[in-house]
């Protein structure tokens, strides 16, 4: 079984600070991590590899330093990794990103046919959840979003049954391979890296593909040029004009007074 897992390297948003005057993101010193949602996809892929054998190929589009994120995934047990990296990819929105990733997956498939593609549910920076559907559409893969459980994979019949989170319930869907799964968070727990895989992660070459190696001929479809969306403005949320009407328990007013006061305010306004 050949599985491709797409991951994005993202800034650790818990540590992101916004410059109070210029409203720009202060990236200096913010560590880059594997998008946390993508680890649920990776763990699910590794479980299928444990069960059926085969390989898990990691794929990332990003700047050269995204190699670290790919090595991290190899340390968890992925077979190998490809970094699609080229200045021409800069400024990509989801349409251009899915174009580039789809081209790279086609190339990967030329080496060995791909049975399943995994992505995370969404990223913690762009946060659109649009890349998975976009890649599936471009490659003609059966799309399964928000998957909470893979019930059954039958490699002989080439079928797959999953549970998918929908509004107000869960859909049980059956489809055929090849498919693309976007994995829901909290559905599994990432394994610990073994010593052997950690050593392998340090040594194994991460293949770097530029746009030509990724099989991209039409440069008008990638990067800023291939992106229909334009960020026209970035700004801070506006503060409310006045602060809350405050009451303090203690100085002169008892808890009782304060609560009664509040009740009158809420139910007369």
């Amino acid at each position: 079984m050949h599985i491709v897992v797409c991951i994005k390297q993202v800034p650790d948003s818990a540590q992101i600070r916004v410059h109070p005057v210029t409203n720009t993101i202060m990236r200096q010193g913010v560590p880059a991590i594997v998008n946390p949602y993508d680890l649920f996809a990776l763990e699910e892929a590794l479980r299928l590899k444990d069960k059926f054998g085969g390989r898990v190929t990691m794929l990332c589009m990003g700047p050269p330093q995204a190699e670290d994120a790919l090595r991290k995934c190899i340390s968890f047990g992925a077979t190998d990794a490809i970094l699609v990296t080229d200045r021409a990819f800069a400024g990509a929105d989801t349409l251009a990103t899915s174009f580039a990733l789809a081209a790279a997956i086609r190339k990967i498939g030329e080496e060995q046919a791909v049975d399943l593609v995994f992505t995370g549910k969404q990223t913690i920076d762009g946060d659109t959840a649009q890349v998975g559907p976009g890649v599936a559409r471009r490659l003609g893969l059966n799309l399964l979003t928000y998957v909470s459980k893979i019930n059954e994979v039958d490699l002989d019949a080439r079928t797959l049954t999953v549970e998918r989170r929908a509004e107000g319930g869960v859909q049980r869907l059956k489809t055929t391979l090849p498919s693309l799964i976007t994995m829901l968070e909290g559905t599994n727990e990432m394994r610990f890296a073994t010593m052997e895989d950690m050593l392998r992660a340090a040594r194994v070459p991460v293949r770097k593909w530029n746009k030509d190696q990724a099989g991209i001929e039409d440069v008008s479809k990638i990067g800023l040029k291939g992106s229909p969306t334009i960020v026209s403005k970035v700004f801070a949320p506006k503060a409310r004009k006045e602060r809350a009407e405050m009451q303090e328990v203690g100085d002169g007013s008892s808890v009782n007074d304060v609560c009664l006061n509040l009740l009158q305010k809420i139910f007369t306004t």
């Binding site: 959840a129 649009q130 559907p133 976009g134 998918r164 509004e167 334009i230």
Partner: peptide
């Protein structure tokens, strides 16, 4: 921006080759 809307919008925008702003 529900599980249905995001699934469908992402696929339709890609097919149409147009821009989609999320959430």
């Amino acid at each position: 921006a529900t599980t249905m809307g995001r699934d469908l919008a992402g696929s339709v925008a890609t097919t149409l080759g147009t821009g989609l702003t999320a959430d």
